[in-house]
Amino acid sequence: MGSFSVWHWVVVLVIVLLVFGTKKLRNIGSDLGGAVKGFKDGMKGSQEEKAAEQIPAQNQDGKTVDVQAKDVNKS
């Protein structure tokens, strides 16, 4: 069967425009763009949460609290 030529794609595009109209295609495009933006914002949010977990604990004065872990299973 092979791949389609440019003219085949032009004919398909014209048929799609006739069937759906430009308004519906514009709405589909904006919905798709909004979904991509939401996905990017979600990924950015998860990266910010990971960065916030790495920030040291602070007391109410805003000063950093140093915490030293002790190994209770010393041999």
Rank of each mutant, 00 (worst) to 15 (best):
residue 64 T to E: 14
residue 5 S to H: 11
residue 10 V to R: 15
residue 24 K to F: 06
residue 5 S to V: 07
residue 17 L to P: 00
residue 42 G to N: 04
residue 43 M to V: 11
residue 72 V to I: 09
residue 18 L to D: 02
residue 61 D to E: 15
residue 61 D to W: 10
residue 59 N to H: 14
residue 27 N to L: 11
residue 14 V to R: 11
residue 50 K to N: 06
residue 32 L to K: 10
residue 59 N to D: 15
residue 38 G to R: 01
residue 62 G to K: 14
residue 54 Q to C: 08
residue 22 T to F: 08
residue 51 A to C: 02
residue 34 G to W: 05
residue 24 K to A: 05
residue 35 A to N: 12
residue 35 A to S: 10
residue 59 N to G: 13
residue 25 L to G: 00
residue 29 G to M: 12
residue 15 I to D: 06
residue 44 K to A: 11
residue 31 D to M: 07
residue 11 V to G: 05
residue 56 P to F: 01
residue 47 Q to D: 07
residue 32 L to A: 11
residue 73 N to L: 05
residue 42 G to Y: 03
residue 1 M to W: 08
residue 48 E to F: 07
residue 64 T to K: 14
residue 65 V to F: 06
residue 58 Q to W: 12
residue 29 G to H: 15
residue 12 V to T: 07
residue 8 H to N: 11
residue 4 F to P: 00
residue 58 Q to G: 05
residue 50 K to P: 00
residue 26 R to C: 02
residue 64 T to P: 01
residue 53 E to C: 03
residue 37 K to D: 06
residue 65 V to G: 03
residue 60 Q to F: 13
residue 6 V to D: 08
residue 47 Q to L: 10
residue 49 E to R: 11
residue 13 L to S: 14
residue 66 D to C: 07
residue 7 W to P: 00
residue 5 S to Y: 13
residue 65 V to R: 09
residue 35 A to V: 07
residue 7 W to M: 07
residue 3 S to R: 13
residue 21 G to H: 01
residue 54 Q to L: 12
residue 26 R to F: 05
residue 36 V to W: 09
residue 51 A to N: 03
residue 35 A to W: 13
residue 72 V to W: 12
residue 9 W to K: 09
residue 17 L to G: 02
residue 7 W to E: 09
residue 19 V to G: 01
residue 33 G to E: 04
residue 64 T to F: 14
residue 55 I to F: 04
residue 66 D to N: 14
residue 21 G to P: 00
residue 8 H to Y: 11
residue 56 P to T: 00
residue 22 T to P: 00
residue 13 L to Y: 12
residue 11 V to A: 13
residue 18 L to G: 04
residue 13 L to K: 12
residue 42 G to Q: 03
residue 14 V to G: 03
residue 28 I to G: 01
residue 38 G to K: 01
residue 32 L to E: 10
residue 35 A to E: 10
residue 17 L to H: 09
